[in-house]
Design a binder for these strands. Structure first.
Lengths: 208, 208
DNA sequence: ATATTATTCGAACGAACGTTCGATTCATAG
DNA sequence: CTATGAATCGAACGTTCGTTCGAATAATAT
C-alpha cells in the first residue's frame, strides 16, 4: 500500500497529474454501475470504459485487471462501512442505541451508495486469492463489530448471538432487492421500524 | 408448454425414449451445480454438459438456449416451493402455526435443494423477457402467500406487513451465504429459533 | 431384419471477451 | 521552449463463449 517502500529494486517515483484521482474514482463509479447492473461476470470492461468516458485500454492504466477493479470497489466500500460504524458506535452508550446505530449505518450506506452496496453484497464470492482474502478480512471485522453489539443486547449463548447476527445481515442486505428510490422511503423510519421488530418482535408492533 | 397443441403447422408427435426424463433432470441437476458455483453469466454450457455427462451440442437437444436452462431451474423450483407451502398451510389453523409452516418450508427446501435454491435467489434478475415474466409471476404468488400469513399474525397496516415480509425474505434467503452442511444444523431448531425471534424479538429470547 | 426417428456427437461458426503493445497526446518540470 | 514522462488511444492478440449443423448412433415399431 505504501507508495514507495524499499523493495529489491528501486522503483522510479510516480508523480501523477492533477486529476488522476478524479479519473480513478470516476472509473470506479462507472464500474460499480455496470457491475451492479450486469453482475461481475456479465459486465464487460468495454462497457465500464464507455461509461467512464475512457478508452478500453485506458482502464488498464489505472487497474491491472478486471479483478482488481472489483477488488477496489469492495475494499473501499467495506472499509468505509467499518469506519463509519466505528465512529457512530463511539457516541452510543446503551446496547440498544448501538444496535440502532448499526442498522442506521447500514441502511444509510446503502441508500447513498446503491451500486457499490449491491456489488459488495452480490459479488462477495467473485474474487479469489489475495484479493478475496483481503476483502474477507474487512468483512469479518465488520461482522465481529456487529456481533459484539448484538451480544450486548442479547446476552445469550454464542450460537444464538451468531444466528441473530446472520438473520440481521440477511434482512439488511436483502434491501437492495426491493428498495425503490422512486418511492422515497424515509430511511430513518425504515431502520426504526426494523429495530423495533428486532427488539420486540412483530407481536408487539401495534404498540407505539 | 403443451406437447401437442394445434398451431399453424401440424407438428409430428414426439415419442421420447424411456430415459428422456432422467437425462433431462440430470442435466438440470448439473446445471444447478455449475450455475450455483459460477453464477449464470460465469457458467459455461460446456461445463454444464461435462457435468451432465453429455456432449456440448447434446444440451441443445433438451434446451433451446442457455437462458431456457436457467428458466427451467427457476420455474421448477419456485413452483415446487409454492406447492409445498400450499399443502402445509392447509393443515394449519392458528396464524402462528402458519408462520411456522412458512419458515419451516423455506428452510427445508433450501436444505434439500441447495444448488437450486441458490440459483433461484442469486440469479433472480438473470432472465429477461418471457422467461423472466413467467418466473416473476410464480415468485409473486409465493410472496403474496407469505404476505397473507404475516398479515394474519400482524394485523397491522399494509406498509408494515409489506416491510415485515421483506425482512422475513431477507433473512430466509440469506441463509445460503452462511449455511455449512458440514456443521449439520438442526433445521427444525433453526426455524423454531427464527420464528421465536420474529414473534417475540431478541429481548425475550432468554425465556424458554 | 428393416425402417424410422429419437438421441448423441464432433467440428465449426461468428461474436465477444480480457489483455497487451506501440504510438500518440497531453500536462508539467527545467 | 524543450524535454520528460504521465495519460490516452487504436488496433490487434489469443481464448472462450453460445449456438448451429450434418453426420453418426441407439432405441423402438413393424
Amino acid at each position: 500500500m505504501a507508495t514507495d517502500s524499499s523493495g529489491t529494486e528501486s522503483k522510479p517515483p510516480v508523480r501523477h497529474h492533477d486529476n488522476y484521482e478524479k479519473r480513478l474514482s470516476l472509473i470506479l463509479k462507472a464500474a460499480s454501475k455496470i457491475i451492479a447492473r450486469d453482475g461481475f461476470a456479465g459486465a464487460s470492461v468495454r462497457d465500464v470504459a464507455a461509461k467512464g468516458k475512457i478508452g478500453l485500454s485506458g482502464i488498464y492504466y489505472y487497474f491491472e485487471s478486471k479483478d482488481e477493479l472489483l477488488y477496489a470497489i469492495q475494499r473501499h466500500s467495506f472499509s468505509t462501512l467499518v469506519s463509519l460504524l466505528k465512529e457512530r458506535l463511539e457516541t452510543c452508550y446503551s446496547p440498544e442505541d448501538k444496535l440502532k446505530a448499526v442498522i442506521d449505518n447500514h441502511f444509510q450506506f446503502f441508500v447513498k451508495n446503491r451500486d457499490e452496496f449491491r456489488v459488495c453484497v452480490h459479488e462477495m464470492e467473485s474474487l479469489s486469492g489475495k484479493y478475496y482474502k483481503t476483502v474477507l478480512k474487512i468483512r469479518q471485522e465488520y461482522f465481529q463489530l456487529v456481533r459484539g453489539v448484538i451480544d450486548e443486547v442479547l446476552r445469550g449463548s454464542k450460537d444464538e448471538t451468531d444466528l441473530t447476527a446472520l438473520f440481521l445481515f440477511g434482512s439488511l442486505n436483502w434491501v437492495y432487492m426491493w428498495y425503490d428510490p422512486e418511492k422515497n422511503y424515509d430511511v430513518d423510519k425504515l431502520s426504526s421500524q426494523y429495530l423495533r421488530v428486532l427488539l420486540n418482535g412483530i407481536n408487539k408492533s401495534q404498540e407505539l
